[in-house]
């Protein structure tokens, strides 16, 4: 990272204003643009995002390698509380990898090695002695394709809390009169309501979840993640496998969830990012975070020429 900055400064000194189009709002022209996808140097201030309130997650100098492949290069960003942060960029730019670093799901990939720091409310999650169960309870995740378990709708929702031992519904608990059946019902209803699914499924909570439509399944997965009462919700292209109507339901849902939760959402769909997010981070090929800022600013007035090209559809 520091190397990059160094060369950026050099470039600044030597480059004339040879780039086409007024991409940079700065006084002097720092960019070194050759053509199209360019060899533009990333500048530090592009990824600085000022916001009010606390940072829920702060990432600094995060590098991820898959074997010899350097998938994420020195990413630093702060994610504000109770907001929607969109991560956009072309395929293979590392945005999903970044997302999976936030609840250490990358630990499940043997070839991945992670270097850097991620702090959840000031606590480092990449250190010895981190309780992964607790971390993933606080940082929930929703995947690209809907993946409900082959169980009933109610069992899908209560799965997490039951396995964490927060709810006890086993035979023994029933016999001892300690069963939390009422609490389970309550949890199922609350989670499904939060995920805007309750009205559609309240009559068939005991049916197999695989009988739901794709959009319903995805909302069920969101409800399942909400049932463990997380603080952060990570979403990996949650609407990419859904039709427009189901997509718009998910988008509304994400918008509502941001009142209580910190939502980080990866998406391929730039319009979607523009519609639902408060701030947007643009990753470009090579695993670099190129620009991060207020969504309106990023989409209307990007500082980077490459980001402008990407957003206006010139590549990506």
């Amino acid at each position: 990272m520091s190397e990059t900055r160094q060369t950026t400064d050099d470039a600044q000194a030597t480059t004339d204003s040879e780039l086409a189009g007024g991409a940079s709002p700065g006084t002097d022209q720092p960019l070194e643009v050759t053509s199209g996808e360019t060899r533009e140097r990333t500048r530090e201030e592009w990824v600085e995002h000022e916001f009010e309130g606390e940072a829920k997650l702060s990432v600094s100098d995060l590098d991820v390698y898959y074997g010899d492949d350097h998938a994420l290069k020195g990413v630093s960003m702060e994610i504000p509380e109770n907001s929607v942060t969109a991560l956009i960029g072309p395929s293979g730019c590392g945005k999903s990898t970044f997302l999976r670093c936030l609840n250490r799901m990358n630990d499940r990939i043997k070839a991945a090695s992670i270097d850097g720091s991620v702090q959840l409310e000031g606590e480092e999650i990449y250190q010895d002695g981190v309780n992964l169960v607790e971390l993933r309870k606080r940082v929930g995740m929703v995947f690209q394709s809907p993946n409900p378990f082959p169980k009933s709708i109610a069992d899908n929702i209560s799965y997490g809390p039951r396995k964490h031992g927060d709810l006890d519904t086993g035979l023994l608990a029933n016999l001892l009169g300690r069963s939390d059946d009422d609490a389970v019902d309550e949890l199922v209803e609350r989670s499904l309501r939060q995920a805007a699914l309750w009205d559609e499924v309240q009559d068939r909570l005991d049916d197999n979840a695989l009988g739901l439509s794709g959009g319903q399944q995805q909302r069920l997965c969101i409800a399942r993640a909400l049932a463990t009462d997380p603080e952060v919700l990570l979403m990996d292209e949650p609407a990419s496998a859904l039709d427009p109507i189901a997509t718009s339901k998910i988008e509304d849902l994400v918008h509502d969830l941001a009142e209580e939760y910190t939502v980080v959402i990866v998406t391929h769909n730039m319009q979607q990012a523009a519609r639902i997010s408060d701030q947007t981070a643009v990753f470009l090929t090579g695993g670099e975070l190129v620009e991060y800022g207020d969504t309106d600013q990023v989409f209307e007035d990007p500082q980077s020429q490459r980001v402008e090209d990407y957003i206006s559809g010139k590549f990506g």
């Binding site: 929930g140 082959p150 799965y159 396995k163």
Partner: peptide, 26 residues
């Protein structure tokens, strides 16, 4: 499918509980 295992892990459920409640029944 590995999606089940991923989903279970993302909920903070341990490996053995995932095996018992998801993998074995399936």
């Amino acid at each position: 499918p590995d999606e089940y295992r991923d989903a279970s892990a993302a909920l903070g459920v341990t490996k053995w509980q995932t095996i018992r409640s998801i993998v074995l029944p399936a």
